[in-house]
Each structure stands twice: as C-alpha cells, then as structure tokens.
Design a protein around this nucleic acid. Structure first.
Lengths: 184, 184
DNA sequence: ACCATAATTGACCGATTGGTTAATAATAAG
DNA sequence: CTTATTATTAACCAATCGGTCAATTATGGT
C-alpha cells in the first residue's frame, strides 16, 4: 500500500561494493557513492542506514561473491592441493596490471584501513580472514608441506598488495613459482 | 638579520613522518599535523610547502632511517645470507602486536594509498622499493635459493600488512620459519 | 635606537564532508 | 476518488577540509 522502490537492490549493492573497494571507507565520498549507485543520499540512508552501514553491506557483498568463490575452489577435492594453490596464485597473476587488480582486495583494504578504529568491522574481517586461511589449510593437507598456511596466506595477501602497488604479471609469476616450490 | 626558527627541524620531521605513517596522506588532517608538530599551518607552509610537500618530507625521513637501516643490514657481509633474512623477519616479529607495528610500513602504505593518483610519489616509492628488493637479492646470493627474492619480498611486505591487520607474534614466527626453510 | 628581514600566529576563505529533513511523488487499500 | 504509506528528491545543516594572508613578534645589521 505504498510506493515501490525504483532501484535494483543487487545493482546498488554491487556499486556500493565497487566504490568502497576502490576508494576505501574514508576515501569514498557520498558524491562518489551517489554517482555509482544512481541514488540520492536520502534514499541510501532510508534504505540501508548511514555510511558505516553501507560499508558493512559492501563487505558482506564482497564476502558473498569473491571470497566465497575462492574458498569453494580451495576446498574442491576434485583438485589436488597443489592445483588449488596454483589456481589461487593464478587469480593474482590474472589481476596484476589491471584496473580491478589495483583496487586490491576489499577485505585486505578493510583490515588495514578500518580495523584499528572500528571493532565491528575488525571482527567481521577477522572472521572472513580465518575462513580463507582455514580453506588454504585444507588445500595444503595433501601437499608435501601442510604447515605452509602462514606462508601461502602471507604471499597471497602480500601479492594483492603488491598488485595494488603496481607489480607486474612477471613479478607475480615469480612469486607463484616460488610458492609452489615450497609445497611441491 | 631576521628572526630565528623556534622549532627543532629534526623533531618536526619525525613528527611529520609519524603522523603520515599512522594515518596516511588523506587521513592525516592539519589538526593532527599541527598537534604532532606543535606548529601552526602557516609555519608549516612557510617552512616546507603544502601538504603534498610535507608528505614527501615524511617519506624521505622514513627512507633515511627505517629503510636505510634495513638495507644496510641486508648488505652486511659479516652476516650470512640466512642470518640477514632471519633478522629481517625478526624485525617483523618484534613489531607484531605493538602500536607502531599496526602503523604498518610507511612505504607500503604510500604505495597502496597514493600511487594511483600521484606519479611523483609513485616514482619515489618505486625507487625505494627497488633498493630494498635489490638488498634482499644481495642477501640471498649466498643462500641455497638465490631466486627467492620475490617470495621474501612478498612475505615481508605481506607480513607488514598482516601486522597492521592485527596478526599475532605467533603468526609472524610461523611465517619466518617457513621463509627460512625456503632458503636454508 | 632604528630598520629590514624572517618566523609565527590566528583569523578567515571557499569547498567539501557526512548527515538530516521537509516537501513531493507514487502506489495500494478502502 | 480519497487516504495512508512509502520512496524519492533537493535543499539545508554544522563541522571539517586544505590553503592563504595580514598582523604581530623576534632577530641581526647599521
């Protein structure tokens, strides 16, 4: 018995995710958010809440697609452990030298940008991080070095940051080779 | 034939470095810069230039102490290559779970915060990064795996970010162990 | 003592920040 | 058609952003 929403919630959430992904929490202004979503501040506020709430939605969105996809692959037992880590590193190489790659990883960004200031975000990010690390551990179980979780995680996390900082595909390929040699 | 400077330039540069280190370029407001340096905006502008110039000074300062110290150690041929990488990772462990550790690495922060937007900063950071990677390469020359530069660099860079994201000393110790096993 | 020079201060600038809200528009129920 | 409910818009808010500058203060040379 009232007016309908004019926007596509899925598209708005994707746009939210992308804006915070690119610019971070502080870096994303309402001007950019409005341009990306096509909504006015008031609509955003009414539909989702304040900026922090928008950020939470963006992280949940990222968790639901990018992260979940990676976790699923890392736990896919139709692949060998080595193959799974290889694919994980391939994802890095694929993103190097691309605009999206230079956005980094939304969760890594969130972990470094916000965590000292907002405990809710910190908890959420920490939980997702643990899920990924656990998935890496699962993948490593059948390899020659099942204790390399921290190394693989640091290399992956570090690789994302390196890409953000402008590293080339060649650099990432070298990193992959060395990581694989540890677990081969 | 004119008034003297009332401030200690060394202390002001240290304060500048610390503020940008903690908060990043955008995150550091003049209110914080003024509080940390004890100077008014006008004095800062007269003495050093605008905010971007202050940031350059901060990076140069960081390069001159923290980075140069690490590079010197990595090239110290009174130590074995393995010892040098061990010490590099020890520095990470020492910083984990400390306030300063959670500031991250000023250069890594600069590389990820600013590089897409300011080519001067990008060039400067890239040059310093190459110096460190080259020092790592030198240290690795006498080890069993002289091609592990990218891995060590990614682990170090990644470790810095992990610390910023709240990783424990135990996590960093595990990372160190795994890195050393690659070059032992 | 006087003056030229430089350091310092604090007020002020326009622009932008995140956030709020009254007015308007659209819809479904009665 | 009328009315209650909700979505949407655009104007507005105080606070803060980086930056500027005239006025003040302190110094060394003459």
């Amino acid at each position: 018995m009232a007016r309908h929403r004019e926007f596509d919630e899925d598209k708005v959430l994707d746009a939210l995710r992308d804006v915070f992904w690119q610019y971070g929490y502080d870096g994303a202004s309402y001007a950019q958010i409005m341009a990306a979503t096509g909504l006015q501040k008031g609509s955003l506020y009414a539909a989702f809440g304040d900026k922090k709430a928008l950020y939470h939605k963006a992280i949940a969105r990222y968790d639901g697609d990018a992260v979940s996809g990676a976790v699923k692959m890392l736990k896919d037992d139709t692949l060998s452990g080595e193959q799974r880590i290889s694919r994980l590193m391939d994802a890095l190489i694929k993103d190097a030298e691309t605009p999206q790659g230079r956005w980094g990883c939304l969760l890594c960004n969130a972990a470094t940008d916000m965590s000292p200031f907002d405990s809710e975000i910190e908890d959420k990010v920490m939980a997702i991080k643990q899920r990924v690390k656990s998935a890496i551990k699962t993948a490593l179980k059948t390899t020659s070095n099942p204790n390399a979780t921290e190394l693989v995680w640091a290399a992956y996390f570090g690789g994302r940051i390196l890409i953000k900082a402008g590293a080339t595909k060649a650099t990432l390929r070298a990193l992959k080779k060395q990581v694989l040699s540890v677990i081969a």
